[in-house]
Amino acid sequence: MAQLTAGTWNLDNSHSEVNFIVRHAGISKVRGSFNTVSGTAVVGENFSDAKIDVTIDLASINTRDENRDGHLKSADFFDVENHPHMTFVSTEIKDVDGDEFTLVGDLQILGNTRQVELKGEFGGETVDPFGMTRAGFEAKGEISRKEFGLTWNAALETGGVLVGDKVKIEIDASFVLSSDDA
């Protein structure tokens, strides 16, 4: 992997996306995103020693359907009133091979914490026209929503359930090197 500059990197929410995909009625997929995400990556001498800490505002969920978004914010799903955030804290970066790696960390939803692994790719580091040092990453993975206490569902007349258990996660992240480290 090309060396990433050591220092504290701040997530650039306006140039990052946290998306998810889940099966609906067993026949199609619903795609959504979270519009408000914050976080840092603290990088030392080696990228594999980096510590990543991300917070997602669950009230910022967007599936392009206001009624569905409202239901997802309710106690049936994310219970945003009592659990406003989802968090991810890295515990390990392993299997670094070129620009690809595995990001391991603790994901917390509804107060339930589970270890997850995301397949990551380093997009590079550059200085933008405004003099800010940027780094880009992609990460993908899959979780079981039931493992986090997201168990609401409805049975279908034809068998099966309305909402699938497996949720695919796709992240495009842009980080900016802190001005203290630039």
Rank of each mutant, 00 (worst) to 15 (best):
N35T: 13
V37K: 04
V37I: 15
V37H: 00
S38I: 11
S38A: 14
T40D: 01
T40G: 01
A41N: 05
A41E: 07
A41P: 02
V42N: 14
V42W: 10
V42H: 07
G44T: 08
G44N: 13
G44I: 06
G44H: 06
E45I: 01
E45N: 12
N46L: 08
N46P: 04
N46Y: 06
N46W: 04
N46I: 07
F47Q: 09
S48G: 10
D49W: 09
D49F: 06
D49E: 14
A50T: 10
A50I: 10
A50W: 07
I52H: 02
I52E: 02
I52V: 14
I52N: 03
D53I: 05
D53W: 00
V54G: 00
V54W: 06
T55V: 14
T55Q: 12
T55K: 14
I56S: 03
I56Y: 06
I56R: 02
D57H: 11
D57R: 09
L58S: 10
A59D: 14
A59W: 07
S60A: 09
S60N: 10
I61C: 00
N62M: 08
N62E: 12
T63D: 05
R64W: 13
R64Q: 15
R64H: 14
D65L: 14
E66C: 10
E66N: 14
E66G: 11
N67G: 12
N67F: 11
N67R: 14
N67L: 13
D69H: 08
G70K: 13
G70R: 11
L72Q: 07
L72S: 02
K73F: 03
K73E: 10
S74L: 06
S74M: 07
S74W: 06
A75L: 07
D76M: 03
D76H: 01
F77G: 01
F77L: 05
F78G: 03
D79S: 10
D79M: 04
N82W: 10
H83P: 05
H83Y: 15
H83E: 11
H83R: 10
P84Q: 13
H85F: 12
H85L: 09
M86D: 01
M86S: 09
M86L: 11
T87D: 01
T87L: 02
V89I: 08
V89Y: 03
V89E: 09
S90P: 07
S90Y: 09
S90Q: 08
S90W: 07
T91C: 03
T91I: 08
T91Q: 00
E92V: 04
I93C: 06
I93M: 08
K94T: 14
D95F: 05
D95C: 09
D95Q: 13
V96A: 11
D97M: 10
G98K: 12
G98Q: 12
G98H: 12
D99S: 14
D99E: 14
E100P: 10
E100N: 15
F101N: 06
T102N: 11
T102E: 11
T102D: 13
L103N: 08
L103K: 01
L103S: 02
G105S: 08
D106K: 09
L107D: 04
L107F: 01
Q108V: 11
Q108F: 03
Q108H: 00
Q108D: 11
Q108A: 12
I109P: 02
I109H: 07
I109L: 02
L110H: 09
L110V: 09
G111N: 12
N112S: 13
T113E: 05
T113S: 04
R114G: 02
R114T: 03
